[in-house]
């Protein structure tokens, strides 16, 4: 009986650890803010001018997150290509 109890306990501890780890990984991806914010499925509710202001702020931030200099000449310079 003691042996069976010890065996059960030996399995229970790692199983519980695995379960907790799985929950820890699942929680952020299932929440309302989880996962990557994609372009599709955007929901916009406009009840007042403030809602439009908030939307504009959001759009400005997204547009500012990228820069034309990501494609500037120096990204393809002789130095970058090892031609110097």
């Amino acid at each position: 009986m003691d042996r069976r109890y010890a065996l059960r306990r030996a399995f229970a501890v790692p199983a519980m650890a695995v379960l907790l780890l799985a929950l820890a990984f699942l929680a952020p991806s299932c929440g309302p803010g989880g996962g990557e914010e994609g372009g599709g499925g955007s929901e916009v509710r406009i009840e007042s001018r403030e809602d439009v202001d908030a939307l504009l702020e959001d759009l400005d931030a997204a547009m500012d997150s990228v820069d034309a200099d990501d494609f500037s000449d120096d990204k393809l310079s002789d130095g970058e290509l090892g031609l110097e």
Partner: peptide, 20 residues
């Protein structure tokens, strides 16, 4: 990164357009 940002902005503008 650029395509993702544009997709996000475009999606929001489309949603705004539908709402309005």
């Amino acid at each position: 990164r650029h395509a993702r940002a544009y997709e996000k902005v475009k999606g929001k503008v489309e949603a705004f357009l539908e709402e309005m």
